[in-house]
């Protein structure tokens, strides 16, 4: 969908932001660009909507060199969310969300319908919030409007630059979860920038880890955790690599099917819960093993040993 082909960006003052970067973002996935500040991740993202032009190399969008596209048209086809949100405080929530459809010249009915739909999706019903100004909203609500605005013209690609970075931890977790749900509903390719490994592991189908100016590893979260390419990646992930692995592994991947054995009488976990939650429950209960239940029906068992090792493919998953 988006392909970076030997891209280098050198700024006018001589700093090389990224050097010879090549990777491909697959359609319908969320790719997270992660790394310390100044590593070039934001620069890389801004190449896609041509807020920054590459010094060398080419960026392809659906096979076309983006230099061939009109930059204004391109930006209207690509959703854009930034950490500072950048809502237009002088416009209402409704007008903010309608920005790009209006620029694209949609007719009024279609815009109205789209705004209603999106605000509904963001849990900000249009009757209540449509005529408010952004200044009247909380930080979390503001960023929901920001996301709605970026999604308004039904873009195929969304660029998100640390979208939840300025929120408090609880709101951030909430929005992350909601966004994962929304993303499952929409068929949209996302390029997501963050400096937080935890967020990258949680949000990404693929993770691109940047060191200063270079792309070090581009892989799935599991592979990044299991096979960090070098010391930089290992350090960047941190010493709690095993814990993080638990965080990105769902229970369903480590449980085995029950064969009617007697299970300890403790609260079950769900197959979609993380292995981290299962471990925590195990530590709490001292039971040694936990039932896994979906909609109140026991579907499997998970043991401490399962959490410790990598998943055993012979046990299979449900």
């Amino acid at each position: 969908m988006i392909e970076f082909d030997n891209v280098t960006k050198q700024y006018d003052d001589g700093t090389v932001a990224i050097e010879d970067i090549s990777f491909e973002v697959e359609e319908g996935t969320t790719t997270v660009l992660v790394g310390p500040s100044g590593c070039g991740k934001t620069t890389t993202m801004k190449l896609v909507n041509r807020l920054i032009e590459p010094t060398e190399g080419t960026v392809y969008f659906e096979g076309t060199d983006i230099e061939q596209k009109d930059e204004i048209e391109l930006r209207r086809d690509v959703g854009y969310v930034i950490q500072e949100i950048g809502l237009f405080d002088h416009m209402t929530v409704r007008e903010n969300v309608a920005t790009v459809p209006k620029l694209k010249g949609w007719d009024d009915d279609r815009i109205r319908e789209r705004v209603r739909e999106l605000l509904e999706l963001m849990d900000l019903p249009v009757e209540e919030y449509g005529d408010q100004h952004p200044t009247e909203l909380s930080g979390g609500q503001r960023q929901r409007v920001g996301v709605a605005r970026a999604l308004a013209a039904d873009p195929d690609v969304m660029l998100m630059d640390e979208p939840f970075g300025a929120l408090d931890p609880i709101t951030r977790a909430e929005l992350q979860d909601e966004f994962l749900d929304i993303q499952a509903e929409l068929d949209v390719t996302i390029l997501f920038v963050t400096h937080s490994v935890e967020e990258a592991l949680k949000m990404g189908d693929r993770i691109a880890i940047f060191d200063v100016g270079e792309l070090v590893q581009y892989d799935t979260p599991q592979n990044v955790l299991e096979n960090p390419k070098n010391d930089f990646v290992r350090d960047f992930i941190g010493q709690d690599r095993e814990l993080k692995k638990l965080q990105v592994t769902p229970v369903r991947k480590v449980m085995y099917e029950t064969n009617g054995e007697r299970l300890p009488d403790v609260d079950p976990v769900a197959p979609s819960d993380t292995a981290q939650i299962a471990l925590s429950r195990l530590l709490e209960t001292d039971a040694g093993r936990l039932p896994v239940a979906r909609d109140g029906e026991v579907v499997g068992v998970v043991e401490e040993a399962d959490l410790r090792g990598t998943s055993d493919p012979t046990r299979g998953s449900i």
């Binding site: 930006r75 209207r76 930034i82 809502l87 237009f88 002088h90 620029l103």
Partner: peptide, 23 residues
């Protein structure tokens, strides 16, 4: 004017003149 709003406007595909006039 809030720089983020101007940047968001640019990222969403507003021309320089549209940013001046609308934001």
């Amino acid at each position: 004017v809030d720089e983020a709003a101007v940047e968001a406007g640019e990222g969403l595909g507003m021309t320089k003149f549209q940013r001046l006039r609308k934001i």
